[in-house]
Design a protein around this nucleic acid. Structure first.
Lengths: 164, 164
DNA sequence: CTGGGGCTTCCAACGATGGGAAGGTCAAGG
DNA sequence: CCTTGACCTTCCCATCGTTGGAAGCCCCAG
């Protein structure tokens, strides 16, 4: 079957299927005479596995390991469990980080009148001189932002040149 | 003062300071005779503001808006509060997503013996035929993973075998 | 035979950050 | 005065997962 069909029934987009192939997560697909990639049920099965793993927050690299565990009939269930628990622990760390942000923000917001006067503890909390806003892990890349579509916006905020 | 010093006392790396300038988040820095960027206390103050906002999970784009709110003496505290509450809501969505993953994974893990036998409900949960693993937002980019280094990656040299 | 939809590859972008190269500047020490 | 080394400059590249688009080939229905 063609990539489009495989994509539809696996829930992985054609783009991503090619990407996974390119990065070696999945083996190179068979080709039809036309040069089109050719997928069978086993391929689709694997793709669905991948999509579910992504939905559970595993990185592509981790999914590579999961695929190895999946096809390794000799491995112990303890191995898989350890892997999963590791991941759970990481997810909980992320949650804790976000929760800390939420707590800080809610504290600030609770102190903000939210009326038409300009004084605002939220902004003051960000601007304040002291070494405020407790940061959990000082310098760690953050990435979990973003939810809706992106579209518009071509490198934002351009004209906010305030001498302040 | 030089960028390195401004970086040290603001907590924003020189790389990021230049990046923020380049994208227009902050105005172009003054230059010394040498061509070095020159920062004063107000600049550092703004950088600290930015770092705190980042620590609270705001995107750079949002920080642009926050900077605008900061320097706008006529805006109502309600505006800031609304902005913050919006952000809090998004953070909570993220938390809920991750929590759902954790719940699913923990359910699977709880059913896994974790012994030396190969049968494993975790892997089976990923591989299972049915339309399992409830996904919250079907096709939404996810990004908060990341743990260790990358490297590895096989990828057998591109011998594009085309019969064509 | 033509049209349109699917497929191919390649290239770029997103966001935030770090790494590194090639070269200019500056202050301290010989 | 000159060297050394720390700092600065600009550029380009990589990350991670995903999407978008362009240019061109393939296939089927009309």
């Amino acid at each position: 079957m063609n990539i489009g069909r495989a994509a539809k029934i696996s829930g992985v987009s054609p783009k991503m299927i090619r990407y996974y192939e390119q990065t070696g997560l999945i083996p190179k697909a068979a080709r039809q005479d036309s040069g089109y990639r050719d997928y069978d049920d086993a391929d689709v099965h694997r793709l669905r596995f991948i999509r579910r793993a992504r939905d559970l927050g595993f990185t592509v690299e981790q999914i590579g390991e999961l695929l190895g565990l999946w096809s390794d009939r000799s491995r112990a269930s303890a191995d898989v469990k350890a892997f999963a628990l590791e991941h759970i622990a990481r997810l909980k760390e992320k949650m804790a980080e976000i929760e800390a942000m939420v707590r800080t923000l809610e504290t600030l917001a609770n102190h903000c009148h939210g009326d038409d006067r300009p004084d605002c503890p939220i902004i003051e909390g960000l601007a304040e001189e002291g070494g405020a806003t407790p940061r959990l892990q000082p310098r760690e890349p953050r990435r979990f932002g973003r939810s809706g579509g992106q579209s518009a916006r071509r490198h934002a905020a351009g004209s906010s040149n305030r001498t302040h």
